[in-house]
Design a binder for these strands. Structure first.
Length: 858
RNA sequence: GGGCGAGUGGUGGAACUGGUAGACACGCCGGCCUUAGAAGCCGGUGGCGCAAGCCGUGAGAGUUCGAGUCUCUCCCCGCCCACCA
């Protein structure tokens, strides 16, 4: 096997050459040349101790292929890589082994880098970044301070510097402290006491996105609710823009749908129900949120979430006759974890006796209940119940024997009490209301009219609410970016001056977080005690660190200018590179990283830290890969013992076979099981390619048949289009078909073979490079030109015409491609076989599909 | 319960705006080569049938000359969200 295909030899050889020549390094050019750039991005990995998973290369190779094609098409390509290296696994490992996370991280990065290089990915390593590097997290901290020093102006709909915030007169008169509190409450990054998702096992507060389903994303433990003062970032201010701007980007529809749903904008109204009570100092109303103000006439009771603050006020007032019963219910709710609360099927609740609410539309008294099917954190934490038109209210009303009242005319019971009904009859829009002043109106119009009526009479207003919550940005952990704030007893929250950034992570002995909910940093007095940057008095550092979403919220900007020590990225370079042209990542990040980073970007864009020319969205196009499952379709996991290690595959088959197999395994956006046998097919394919080149070298002045020529041009078209559409599996198949056909030829014309090698180059960069050089080229195939097809050579001179009689294929005949429709039809009908099937009858319909078939109906 | 996606040979999967279902690959079967094997090469491979042929894309109906593709009803599977008023 002297001349055989030896993947590992040529792969290492060319990897060294590419690195030395820097062929994958992107060039920063003036913004005027923007149409020449292409910025392809993959989600940078967390460098885990396990090393690369076979899932990583699926995404990386895909974008590698797209960017290699763009480069061959003459684009100046940026395809960068880095490390999202802050995070719990590194810290947990540190707790166990007492090794500093930076030591483990450096080791893991070296391993990842070796693995990624061995696969032949065309990353620009000169732009490598690491979120745990102080030269990187200096800017993460600096950007955090921008949030701290800004507020959101709802009038102009964008963030502005905090200096521009107008202080209302009634605040100003209360003195300096009041003004400070006011300003702090308006900042984009603010500290707030709130109930948070607390994981008792990880001893850490979690954002809603990290505690979906009431379970800690990290360890799967059930999450508790705790009250804690935490740093928050006001992502809710951007909710509308995060939804609306999706119209201007090319994301997979399911990604858009998921983000829209997560943000959960719903338009409705606040409605005030007056409180009927004998007591004097009682708050005189309760405000509910509803999306169906048109059903106000059907309200038969009001429900408050158990944690609603009004409940305590009513109890304190002494007018509630069953205070003890209510307290028992509230405590019962508190004890329930989020998970239990979701699993419980039956509704529960308790009436607040002694007071009533007044329906503003009818003036009727309705009872007030508290129940945990109403969520404290959504809307106003209180609802108006319309059991005749809402399933949940219906269920609750049935359980507690509360009355039903419908507002629609289409029922024979229209507009009256309907206590006797056992099933929910009318739930939706489109019906006609026949209650009160909306008699005869469609619900959609009634909604509008009702909102107008409510606001005219001071009973409510139009209101849009969101499911999205502000982002809990504090973590009580060691291995994260310290939040660069000093807490001064005199001055309050004081940002660490830019000249003192980064606030470095200090050395500690213990990495274990404490049960009190404080970060390990709190134990290091020498680090915590500082001089206030503002008044020079004694002060303390903030000891919370940032979540590990911080570094990844802006890393794509840093790639544009990774070594800048004056600013996070030079605006001129941002103008050239942004936005990212193609971003691929996992679906699991749709409501996390993808949403967060869009938000950060928009914020920086508002402050002109990202130039206006870059546009309001960071990613022009977002695609998503699916998973590679274990053999047999189960998810790969250490416990199942079905994990495939990329190192083993590369060692056995080489990088090119590995890459092509991952592309051939199935549609990019569909899960696919690993198949050890399947790789053999790609190995055979590349061996065939290797051998085929011999025919080129010995070739004379042979003429390529028209048939092969058409196939070549069709293949160029197919592979080009498939790469753009990310249909890599069918692109590989098209190349296989071409190779199988070329194998039939005695010898091969050089230009034909060169076109094929160029098509192959993005998929199998090493073998393509080797064969290219063997043909005598000195320059890399990867900086050569992408082949183009000749559209006049896509059509065969003849084609096989399929003839159907009554929908069944009855004959196939060869037809000249340029024959007219009438001639083709005549030939088809004249066919002997067809005549037999016609049995002398006249066809009543003959249809011709150009270049394909004739269908005859008898 | 809601949203999204899917259901095609033994397997992974092809099939452009409705137009020859099963491309390509794996596996399997037969042959060549070999002392034997591996590799390689050649041929075959949806089902039933000796054959002509018939039947076939989760089930059923519909539209059409023609349906994997469009419409309706239903059944399964996967993922995400989930008492969001």
């Amino acid at each position: 096997m002297v001349n055989g295909f030896q993947p590992r030899e040529i792969e290492e050889k060319w990897q060294a050459v590419w690195a030395e020549q820097g062929i994958y390094e992107a060039k920063d050019l003036p913004a005027a040349l923007k149409d020449r750039k292409f910025y392809g991005l993959i989600e940078f990995p967390f460098p885990s101790g396990e090393g690369l998973h076979v899932g990583h290369p699926r995404s990386y190779t895909a974008i590698d292929i797209v960017t290699r094609k763009k480069r061959m098409e003459g684009k100046n390509v940026l395809y960068p890589i880095g490390w999202d290296a802050f995070g719990l696994p590194a810290e947990n490992y540190a707790i166990k082994t007492k090794t500093h996370p930076s030591v483990t991280t450096a080791k893991n990065i070296a391993n990842f880098k070796r693995q990624l290089t061995s696969i032949g990915l065309g990353f620009d390593w000169s732009r490598e970044i690491d979120t745990t590097d102080p030269t990187y997290y200096k800017w993460t901290q600096w950007l955090f301070l921008k949030f701290f020093q800004s507020y959101f102006d709802p009038i102009v709909g964008r963030a502005l510097p905090i200096e521009a915030l107008a202080i209302p007169e009634q605040v100003r008169v209360q003195g300096e402290l009041a003004v400070r509190d006011f300003i702090d409450s308006k900042r984009m990054a603010f500290k707030s006491e709130s109930t948070i998702n607390w994981c008792p096992r990880c001893k850490i507060g979690l954002a809603n996105e990290e505690a979906q389903g009431g379970v800690c994303e990290r360890c799967g433990n059930s999450v508790e609710q705790r009250v804690k003062k935490q740093w928050m970032i006001r992502i809710t201010a951007y909710a509308d823009r995060l939804v609306d701007d999706l119209e201007h980007v090319d994301y997979l529809e399911k990604i858009k749908a998921q983000q829209i749903h997560w943000i959960g904008r719903s338009k409705g109204a606040y409605v005030d129900f007056a409180i009927q009570s004998k007591a004097k100092n009682l708050p005189d109303k309760v405000t509910v949120f509803t999306t169906r103000p048109d059903t106000l006439f059907g309200v038969t009771y009001v429900v408050l979430a158990p944690e609603h603050p009004l409940i305590q006020a009513w109890i304190n007032d002494g007018d509630v006759s069953n205070a003890d019963e209510i307290r028992v219910y509230q405590e019962g709710t508190n004890l329930k974890s989020e998970l239990q609360r979701q699993e419980q099927k039956e509704k529960t609740g308790v009436e607040v006796k002694g007071i009533k609410a007044v329906n503003p539309a009818t003036g009727e008294d309705v009872p007030i209940w508290i129940a945990d099917y109403v969520l404290g954190g959504y809307g106003t934490g209180a609802i108006m119940a319309v059991p005749a038109h809402d399933e949940r209210d219906f269920e609750f009303a049935k359980l507690f024997g509360l009355p039903l009242k419908t507002v629609v005319a289409s029922s024979e019971l229209g507009g009256v009490n309907i206590d006797a009904v056992t099933e929910l009859p009318w739930t939706n829009d489109g019906v006609v209301i026949n209650s009160g002043m909306f008699d005869g109106m469609k619900t959609a119009d009634a909604k509008e009219k009702m909102i107008d009526w409510l606001s005219e009479n001071g009973f409510g207003e139009a209101k849009t609410t969101y499911r999205l919550r502000d982002w809990v940005f504090s973590r009580q952990r060691y291995w994260g970016e310290p939040i660069p704030i000093v807490i001064c007893p005199k001055c309050g929250y004081v940002p660490v001056p830019e000249s003192q950034l980064p606030v470095l992570l200090p050395e500690v002995k213990e990495y274990e977080p404490s049960d009190t909910g404080e970060s390990p940093l709190a134990a290091i007095r020498s680090w915590v005690d500082v001089v206030c940057p503002s008044c020079s008095g004694n002060a303390e550092r903030e000891t919370d660190t940032m979540p590990n979403w911080a570094g990844s919220s802006w890393y794509f900007l840093r790639y544009c200018d990774p070594h800048n020590d004056q600013t996070f990225a030079d605006p001129e370079k941002l103008k050239f590179w942004m936005p990212v042209d193609l971003y691929n990542g996992g679906m699991e990040h749709t409501t996390l990283h993808l949403l967060y980073s869009r938000f950060w970007y928009k914020f920086l864009w508002d402050l002109n830290l990202v130039p206006r020319e870059c546009g309001s969205e960071p990613y022009a196009k977002r695609r998503s890969h699916a998973l590679i499952m274990g053999e047999g379709g189960m998810k790969m996991s250490k416990s199942k013992g079905n994990v495939v290690n990329p190192d083993d595959v590369v060692a056995k088959y080489g990088a090119d076979v590995f890459r092509m197999y991952e592309m051939f395994i199935g549609p990019f956006d569909q899960d696919a099981p690993w198949d050890t046998n399947g790789i053999e097919g790609l190995k055979r394919f590349l061996e065939k390619v290797w051998k085929l080149q011999e025919k080129v070298i010995s070739s004379k002045n042979s003429v390529l048949s028209r048939e092969k020529e058409v196939l070549l041009h069709r293949t160029i078209k197919k592979v080009s289009e498939d790469i753009e559409g990310m249909h890599f599996n069918t692109a590989v198949s098209a190349m296989m078909i071409l190779v199988n056909a070329l194998q039939e030829e005695k010898d091969l014309q050089k230009p034909v073979w060169e076109s094929f090698l160029k098509l192959l180059a993005p998929f199998a960069p090493h073998i393509a490079e080797e064969l290219w050089h063997q043909l005598g080229y000195a320059e890399s195939i990867h900086v050569s030109s992408w082949p183009t097809f000749d559209s006049t050579k896509l059509q065969h001179l003849q084609f096989e015409l399929v003839i159907q009689v009554n929908g069944k294929v009855r004959d196939k005949i060869l037809i000249e491609s340029d024959l007219s429709e009438d001639d083709v039809k005549a030939k088809a009908v004249a066919s002997e076989k067809i005549q037999q099937y016609l049995e002398g009858k006249m066809p009543h319909k003959v249809v011709y599909v150009k270049g394909r078939l004739v269908s005859i109906a008898v």
